[in-house]
């Protein structure tokens, strides 16, 4: 088991929106916290869906530049969720300017890891709900992460985007094993979904075995404003997220 003095960083990323990133980030954070990992979920998507699900609003006085410096200002932005071991760095519209900000800094591609290391004392795991698009911020996130999880809907278009991300890792000399994928919003009754999943699970070693089904309990995160396992623990979707967490933890603990 991990001797990790260092905090682990897990990011959930895709260039596309609407693929289940936020759903995965929130449910994984919740499950990690339940498993005893002191977890900080960073909602870096200015839209703030993760924050919304945890019923948390950001402070008005957010200053991304000050935040990036770490230290007490950064710590003061953090909010405790309603669940043990789970805290949140809420989203803020000003995160849109992260890119410009990073661009002006030294080591602009790896600035973020230092920021996270500033939280090493307080957390075992940092989960990032990353914004879509390939930007300097996303590259920073890749470099800062121990594992980048990519939710992929089993459709042709989605897989094209997935290939783009792999190409980017390759081009930027990022280790290929750092990016792992899992199938999201899978509809078993669609033959295209079934066939695609089967093919990729056989051919691409970067895919986790678990598949997150398309399910209305996941959609209910919106009206319920809560992680799936907290209100539908025995639903197939909650079990799938449980399996996703086990596979993720196994990678993080290696």
């Amino acid at each position: 088991m991990a001797k990790n003095k260092k905090v682990k960083v897990l990011s959930v990323y895709n260039i596309k929106g609407g693929v289940g990133k936020t759903a995965a980030a929130v449910n994984l954070s919740y499950l990690a916290a339940q498993a005893g990992w002191r977890t900080l979920l960073c909602d870096f998507d200015p839209q703030g869906a993760s924050s919304y699900y945890l019923r948390i609003k950001p402070e008005d006085k957010m200053k991304p530049k000050k935040l990036l410096k770490g230290g007490s200002f950064a710590h003061k932005q953090i909010k405790e969720s309603d669940y043990p071991n789970l805290e949140l760095l809420p989203a803020h519209l000003d995160y849109r300017h992260f890119d410009l900000l990073l661009d002006k800094q030294k080591k602009s591609k790896s600035r973020l890891r230092a920021f996270f290391d500033g939280f090493a004392e307080d957390y075992d795991l940092i989960v990032i709900d990353a914004p879509p698009n390939i930007t300097l911020l996303s590259e920073n996130i890749f470099r800062a992460s121990d594992l980048v999880l990519i939710p992929v809907i089993p459709t042709t278009l989605s897989l094209l985007t997935y290939a783009q991300i792999r190409a980017f890792f390759d081009q930027e000399d990022l280790p290929a094993r750092r990016a792992r994928a899992f199938f999201s919003m899978v509809e078993k009754r669609k033959s295209l979904h079934r066939e695609t999943v089967e093919k990729y699970l056989q051919e691409d070693p970067h895919f986790f075995a678990v598949q997150i089904p398309m399910a209305s309990v996941v959609e209910k995160m919106g009206p319920n404003r809560a992680p799936v396992p907290s209100y539908a623990a025995s639903s197939p979707a909650a079990r799938a997220y449980g399996e996703l967490w086990r596979e993720t933890a196994a990678v993080l603990e290696r």
Binding site: M1, A2, K3, A35, G36, W37, N85, D124
Partner: peptide, 25 residues
């Protein structure tokens, strides 16, 4: 600090009776 839920029955005796994870470590 570290916490975990123990599966099964009976009282735990040794560290290896706990599920793999931070508490066990």
């Amino acid at each position: 600090r570290q916490q975990a839920r123990l599966p099964g029955k009976g009282e735990p005796q040794f560290w290896w009776d706990f599920p793999e994870g931070r508490l066990q470590a």
